[in-house]
């Protein structure tokens, strides 16, 4: 049976955790793309119905607040993996 030294095991754990942090950060791309898409559609909606601008801005703001949180979840996990 092959035995690894504690230094090797620690190095493997560190490298795998850095890879996992990188993979976790992929989750941050999705909300950005989604928010951009929503903003584009909101712009065309305001152009069609300028009197609804206030409600469009508010709805978009609430949507962005909620959708942005998934990116931060992944960020928290990634930082925890890298710095612990």
């Amino acid at each position: 049976m092959v035995e690894f030294s504690p230094e090797t095991i620690e190095m493997v754990i560190r490298s795998v955790s850095v890879i996992a942090a990188g993979l976790a950060l992929i989750a941050g791309i999705g909300p950005g793309v989604g928010m951009g898409f929503a903003a584009g559609k909101a712009t065309s909606a305001v152009r069609r119905q300028p009197e609804a601008r206030g409600s469009i801005v508010t709805t978009m703001l609430l949507g962005q607040i909620i959708s942005g949180s998934t990116g931060i979840y992944s960020l928290v996990i990634a930082i925890y993996l890298v710095f612990t």
């Binding site: 941050g28 909300p31 950005g32 793309v33 928010m35 951009g36 898409f37 929503a38 903003a39 584009g40 559609k41 909101a42 712009t43 065309s44 305001v46 601008r53 469009i56 801005v57 978009m60 703001l61 962005q64 607040i65 942005g68 990116g71 960020l75």
Partner: peptide, 29 residues
């Protein structure tokens, strides 16, 4: 910052607003 960005993006063309909000999100990130 988000409210200001949204209000600014509504005066842009659709494609430009999409890119603008996406870039701003990554700055926030």
């Amino acid at each position: 910052l988000r409210v200001l960005n949204i209000e600014r993006s509504l005066d842009m063309p659709e494609g430009k607003a999409e890119t603008f909000i996406r870039n701003r999100y990554f700055i926030e990130y």
